[in-house]
Design a binder for these strands. Structure first.
Length: 284
DNA sequence: CTAGGATCCTGTCAGC
DNA sequence: TGCTGACAGGATCCTA
């Protein structure tokens, strides 16, 4: 369920452990989870495109990894570094039932675990990574987009609910279900508002909010639903520390005290403060 | 072209 | 205990 901040956290964390290591073997446990022919090479770079992680090898190949809902990357060497969808897999013995791909390295093993099998690892020629259909379609990330560009994008999708719009990676890239709810709360915008009703001022506030909630998460090492012990012994606890609405239904709004509610918008579980985020009425 | 719903898959949890 | 349906931090495919 990694969103942009989690994938960025994985990229930075994994880099320390696997950069310069050679892949000695790739075992595919689930055909669906691995596209292309396994390749052996030395890891020379880790890049991120939206929620996709790309591991470049020295044989002109790259491994593009998308964790989707339940993907995890767990490096087991002298130390263990685990990130992605939080679960007991982070600390349990591997491989296990949910292990889809095993990447053996010179000094350790990288496990790709994925309960629901929505995620995948795909082998690409390094030169074609940016031409990949998924990567090619990605829009700018909030930090690269101007509020004018964002506002124009909202106008192009004026009949869609705002939450669906900001979850669409081809419109603005990086937000997922948590950060969409958090950004909308911070900007005091009801997730069901039609994009066309969002004012220029609100669009700017929403863009700045998206940057802020994701930047805070990146700075604190990504989020997790349950606390878990990372390689350095610290715990990931984004939700406890930063979530204002996500998974806080029934609890008081930290801004006004009214109860946070959970509903469904754009097919996704959605958390909001009914007092701070009005569906109808004037918006500046 | 846009918008909305079903779908991929496994596992867990609430409610009978 | 067993069953059933709802739901899950994503994205694509299909339909109108």
């Amino acid at each position: 369920m990694p969103e942009l901040p989690e994938v960025e956290t994985i990229r930075r964390g994994l880099r320390k452990y696997i950069l310069s290591q050679k892949i000695t073997k790739i075992k595919v446990c689930c055909e669906k989870s691995f596209l292309g022919t396994p390749t052996l090479g030395k890891i020379i770079n880790l890049r991120r495109f939206g929620k996709a992680l790309v591991i470049d090898l020295d044989d002109n190949k790259s491994l593009m990894i998308h964790l989707r809902m339940t993907g995890q990357l767990i490096y087991d060497g002298k130390e263990r570094y685990a990130a992605g969808h939080p679960s007991d897999n982070f600390t349990s013995n591997l491989p296990n039932k949910q292990t889809r791909v095993i990447i053996e390295l010179e000094n350790g093993v990288l496990y790709f675990n994925d309960q629901r099998k929505f995620g995948f690892i795909k082998v690409l020629e390094t030169s074609t990574v940016e031409k990949d259909a998924f990567i090619k379609k990605l829009a700018k990330e909030p930090w690269q987009m101007t509020s004018a560009e964002f506002y124009e994008a909202l106008q192009r999708h004026k009949n869609s609910v705002i939450k669906a719009v900001i979850l669409d990676q081809t419109i603005i890239c990086g937000l997922g279900n948590i950060y969409a709810d958090e950004a909308l709360f911070m900007a005091k915008i009801h997730p069901k508002r039609r994009a066309g009703t969002i004012t220029k001022k609100e669009a700017e506030k929403l863009l700045l909010s998206a940057r802020e909630v994701m930047q805070k998460s990146i700075d604190s090492g990504g989020s997790t639903m349950r606390t878990y012990v990372k390689a350095d012994g610290t715990k990931g606890d984004y939700l406890e520390k930063f979530a204002q609405v996500f998974r806080r239904e029934g609890k008081p709004c930290l801004r006004c005290g009214k109860k946070i509610i959970k509903t469904k918008v754009a097919g996704r579980g959605t958390h909001l403060c009914p007092n701070c985020q009005k569906e109808k009425g004037n918006h500046d």
